[in-house]
Nucleic acid binder design. Structure first.
Lengths: 296, 296
DNA sequence: GCAATAGTGTCTTTAAGACATTATGCC
DNA sequence: GGCATAATGTCTTAAAGACACTATTGC
């Protein structure tokens, strides 16, 4: 900011700078989004470490995501990263974020910086943890980072990107141009959570922390529904849980447990066109007796 | 700090100040500690709200705690508060804490400020949440508070208080003097978690948050053992859970579940002197397969 | 009919909760 | 012996997991 003329010792006497960083998850990257590459060998190693078999099918590819997302891309989580242009860690990928202005809440800063990187508003936002180690950014002013994690739903990423602050309704003809503009920023890309590049600061630790939180929160809360649209099949909901948990889930038992929660409403409609028995479409209904937990 | 000559608008342009506040729980206050009073009527109301029957037996009393803690004092949690001497909220009770120096980690600051108030080191410390609302302290420089929660065990509070930084071994003759000195600070007192006075800032919210975290964490982690000494009976361990959960627990079922965790080692020794069958003394043993959770 | 997935039913195992029963030290 | 609590045993119920089986569409 304005402390460029200060010496290191002068900066150390200042109060620490406070910044927000956000780990934003989605089932798959938005259409026309730039996909990050992290190297094939690193990809295979990471996939093996997480326990995915053959998950590195398109590792290293920088191509566009097909409009109709394949089933293969479903069983992993994606998150947006921003390439740093300044020291420290210049050139490395980092979580979206930035310093908090004096008149913005922490959550507001998280949403604003996320919107600037992803051009879309997240569907869910929750504070994760605060990191304030003394040696976080050596030689510079001390930095305290408050980490958030966020979640994008299918409907958030399927459509057009935001241009202005309040721009939301763009007609079909402009989508390709928006997509092109979105893709033109080389410093923002989406990565599979299984194949992340080396991250700046301790952002790798933050991502791991966010993944833990997402996994445990999926077990007892209703966050998983936010990955999906208004209506969905039980198979889609199960695929979300499989992507988050990283393992296959028995369809029969999952159905029984999902329906027992009481959050699902049968819309009476069905899917069609698939080459098998059609599936019922459900809606998510918030339950009246909502209990929250507080664990870590 | 050094910004006393600045105007309000000048302070708003500064990076926010970062402070740490800690909620420290104990089964009962230390010997010779000053006990806070919060008014009898408020005490009865609070006890009823939490669901304790007849828990307000010594509400409003400012007497010393008896050396042999009564069973009655066991079924509630206690926490230390510090009275503010400066604006804002001058005269109100607040959580121990303070700003973070440039060369101290967040956890170090929490421990140091806690030691300054309680004169003892906590047995457990965990980050809770960060509060950074814009209007937290109006008219002043913006304040971001990183809340921690801590836990004192019986052996931490039973003995003598610390005087210097590394002072730990004080012989018996000095205990009374230490206790008197400890009691002489009128701006530090211990309160029952059920009968708290009005707190400064949003510290009441932070305490509620910490209680939630403590309750859920006792369900699946091993924090509860830290309230107790090296050896303890299953009845003592059950009383900890009852104090945290605020309700009675079936002794038979609790025994079965506690032993099934595999954390308890039978020392072969027994209690004696009570007017009933003696109880076995157990030790806590850290398990090799230690799993952590990450929920909120 | 066949392939593929949607959806249902059943069995086993585990764990929690309620509660009866026995054990033991102190008076 | 009587009291109070420690410690054990038993029964019921709920829920998870494994897995067989039926249903329905497109080809």
């Amino acid at each position: 900011m304005a402390y460029t003329s200060m010496s290191v010792s002068e900066r150390q006497l200042l109060p620490p700078a406070v910044a927000v960083s956000t780990v934003a998850f989605a089932l798959h990257p938005p259409a026309h989004a730039r996909l990050g590459e992290s190297g094939v060998e690193a990809a295979y190693a990471a996939a093996a470490a997480v326990g995915f078999a053959g998950a590195a099918s398109d590792a290293g590819a920088a191509a566009e995501v097909p409009a109709e997302t394949s089933a293969r891309a479903r069983d992993t989580l994606w998150l947006p990263l921003v390439r740093r242009t300044r020291a420290p860690f210049a050139g490395d990928w980092a979580l979206p974020g930035g310093p908090i202005p004096f008149n913005e809440t922490l959550a507001d800063t998280a949403v604003r910086t996320l919107r600037a990187a992803v051009l879309r508003d997240p569907r869910y936002l929750e504070q994760l943890y605060s990191f304030g180690a003394v040696e976080r950014s050596a030689q510079a002013q001390r930095l305290v980072t408050i980490a958030y994690w966020a979640l994008y739903g299918e409907q958030d990423l399927a459509g057009d990107a935001l241009t202005g602050a309040a721009e939301q309704n763009i007609d079909e003809q402009n989508i390709d141009e928006q997509g092109a503009a979105e893709q033109d920023d080389p410093n923002v890309a989406w990565f599979s959570a299984d194949r992340l590049p080396p991250l700046a600061f301790d952002h790798a630790e933050i991502v791991a922390h966010a993944l833990d939180r997402l996994r445990s929160k999926t077990e007892y809360s209703t966050v998983a529904y936010r990955f999906l649209g208004d209506t969905f099949t039980l198979a889609q909901l199960r695929e979300v849980h499989e992507a988050v948990r990283g393992e296959a889930v028995d369809p029969a038992n999952f159905r029984r447990q999902a329906l027992a929660q009481g959050h699902l409403v049968d819309t009476g409609e069905q899917t069609s066109g698939a080459k098998h028995r059609p599936a019922r479409l459900y809606q998510f209904r918030e339950q009246t007796t909502q209990q929250t937990r507080n664990l870590t």
